[in-house]
Design a protein around this nucleic acid. Structure first.
Lengths: 218, 218
DNA sequence: TCAAAACTAGAATTATAATTCTAGTTATAA
DNA sequence: TTATAACTAGAATTATAATTCTAGTTTTGA
């Protein structure tokens, strides 16, 4: 659920500034209903008329706030990304990071990723699709991936105790690339045999990552 | 390059039967130029007018052959899939399959996959995007994945010599899911750090798969 | 209280491309 | 050779949704 505060703080271009409470409330409704609609339709299928109907408003009001449909979805993406950015910051500075062993740390990471993706299934899928034509539109999501790797990489290296060789770092980065790839693919085409819903998914992903990073582990 | 013979053999619904040589030649041109155009544009961006201009024909002729733009891309996909199906059949019945050890076999698989994907980059990306809205449109590609796993799985099990446990099979299938996911993600958003062009990509993928399947290997 | 600014409503407009239609042109086969 | 079917050309049509526009309505601040 995106709220007024987040929207105010993450000032996004393409969202025209509001002066009155009623329009701030409208933006909140549009954002959340937009997110909901993206669970069913993708970017093209998301109709502004339909969105406005669900928000009990009209296209006139919509365009009083947003440049365009593109700007609307960009805004949505920016907010969700900003939300996740904060979540990651909190997560990686909490004292609940499993520092016991690498297997636990990686399972914690994959589980967290799966949970977030399930929550934002619709928007992520729409972003993936849009990325096919407009590569730039994936940039904020890519950034999110980068951030998580920056947080996790030192933790992983530390757990391994060995010297951080370029080769190790390469394997760690590729492990994350595998994780994101596998999860994105589930979101987009759900190829099976494992889905985002399967409890085995984060476990298997963590295992694959663990063994790629540290071959000595079972 | 798709040729007349393949088109004749893989009879596709949505492609109206041809009676004359000139229209068979036209279909060949449309298919190959379509494939070329999909390297630059995706499904929506592919304009029928533009395609016809490149083929030195007109939309009238196009619609004499194809139901619709959808049918056109479906046909393209069917042909490429049929082509790959044959390629896989040949590949897996050749005597050049590396049967020495699992690492070699997996590298052979990942390299083959990367080469094919590079060749059909455009169509695969378009199919991935289309899949976001119409899940059915990925079905033929999914089938290709299934086929490859059916071919490879027994070979892998054989190399491991142990009893084929359900757990082993699960890990093998997940290894392939990882491979397809990582590669599809490269095609769609090219997240880095590794790309389809990097020589390290098939190698790292094979390593990840190997270690997931057989933890005793380095 | 009241004028100006901000906002909302929703019909009308616009843009874009796919698709259709009809009049020619070319190939086929009796 | 010629009637017919197959095909091609490309202008006109259609469909769909985003976007604009203008006339009300509500909020704000003096």
């Amino acid at each position: 659920m995106l709220d007024e505060q987040l929207i105010a703080e993450a000032k996004v271009p393409g969202l025209k500034p509001t002066q009155q409470q009623r329009s701030r409330a409208l933006v909140v409704r549009l954002m959340n209903e937009g997110l909901a609609l993206l669970e069913e339709h993708d970017f093209d299928g998301l109709s502004i008329e339909a969105l406005c109907a669900r928000c009990e408003t009209t296209v006139g009001s919509f365009y009083a706030r947003f440049e365009s449909k593109d700007a609307f979805v960009d805004t949505l993406q920016r907010l969700v990304v900003e939300d996740r950015r904060r979540e990651l910051a909190a997560r990686y500075s909490s004292d609940r990071i499993p520092r016991g062993d690498l297997a636990q740390l990686l399972t914690w990471i994959t589980k967290g990723g799966v949970i977030w993706l399930k929550r934002h299934h619709g928007l992520v899928r729409a972003s993936l699709r849009r990325a096919g034509s407009d590569l730039g539109s994936w940039t904020p999501m890519r950034e999110l991936g980068r951030i998580q790797v920056e947080y996790a990489l030192p933790l992983i290296v530390e757990l391994l105790e060995g010297r951080p060789t370029p080769d190790l770092e390469q394997r760690i980065r590729f492990a994350f690339q595998i994780m994101y790839g596998t999860l994105n693919n589930m979101i987009l085409i759900d190829p099976g045999p494992f889905t985002l819903q399967d409890a085995a998914t984060p476990r298997l992903l963590a295992t694959a990552m663990l063994r790629l990073i540290d071959p000595t582990k079972p």
